[in-house]
């Protein structure tokens, strides 16, 4: 059963070996040149489970991978029961929103300190379970890096996602994310990353501070 048609993959809910699973299928894009299309799909199908596994080592909840089929660009993984943070963040009380964002910051901090850049940190890619645990999903755009630049871009994306979808609470939410981040990576690194984010923003088109 088709569960969600995303940008680069379709997610199906299936039963697999008696378990409820997500089958993530990166179908060929007819609009893309076949050579390029295959390279992108293969690369991401390989990269995603690697990063998900690394994230677990870093202490970040991610779905368990059951099967990877590189030739058909197919991944079978655990189905995480819960709600997308995107759907609930705006309706939470101020205190709950802050603590959720702080927790998300902790998770990002853990990823970064283990050299994993998520690559698409939006609130659609965060799932809150009924036990209050936050799972990060969709590591298709993830990268391995220890560079400040990569961390800055990753968090800049988080900020942008808040700006476009949770515009009323951007400032407080992002501050909370960075507070959580700081708990893991320390104040000095957080300062450096914040400065980097500012630098990245200034590089963009039409920035009033520039």
């Amino acid at each position: 059963m088709l569960f969600k048609k995303g940008a680069e993959a379709s997610l199906y809910i299936e039963e697999w070996q008696g378990r409820k699973v997500i089958m993530k299928q990166r179908l060929p894009k007819a609009y893309r040149l076949p050579t390029l299309d295959e390279a992108i799909r293969t690369h991401r199908t390989v990269r995603e489970p690697q990063s998900i596994h690394k994230a677990k080592e870093a202490g970040v909840p991610t779905p368990t991978i059951y099967l990877v089929d590189i030739t058909s660009a197919n991944i079978v993984m655990e189905f995480i029961e819960g709600k997308q943070v995107k759907q609930i963040l705006n309706d939470l009380s101020q205190a709950k929103r802050r603590s959720l964002c702080r927790h998300i910051g902790v998770l990002i901090g853990r990823l970064h300190s283990h050299g994993i850049m998520h690559g698409d940190l939006t609130t659609s890619n965060m799932i809150l379970t009924s036990h209050g645990k936050v799972f990060l999903v969709d590591f298709g755009l993830s990268e391995r890096s220890n560079e400040l630049e990569a961390r800055g871009v990753d968090l800049h994306l988080m900020k942008r996602a808040l700006q476009s979808t949770h515009y009323r609470y951007v400032k407080k939410c992002f501050e909370a994310v960075m507070a959580g981040y700081s708990e893991v990576v320390g104040r000095n690194t957080t300062e450096d990353v914040l400065n980097k984010i500012q630098e990245i923003e200034r590089r963009g088109r039409y920035v009033s501070e520039r």
Binding site: K5, G6, A7, E8, K29, Y31, R32, L33, L36, I40, D120, T122, S124, T165
Partner: peptide, 18 residues
């Protein structure tokens, strides 16, 4: 062209899904 437009198509598709 192929690379640049594929990138544009991908972000548009992602924003559309979002």
């Amino acid at each position: 062209q192929e690379v640049v437009f594929s990138m544009l198509a991908e972000v548009t598709e992602r924003a559309l899904a979002h």
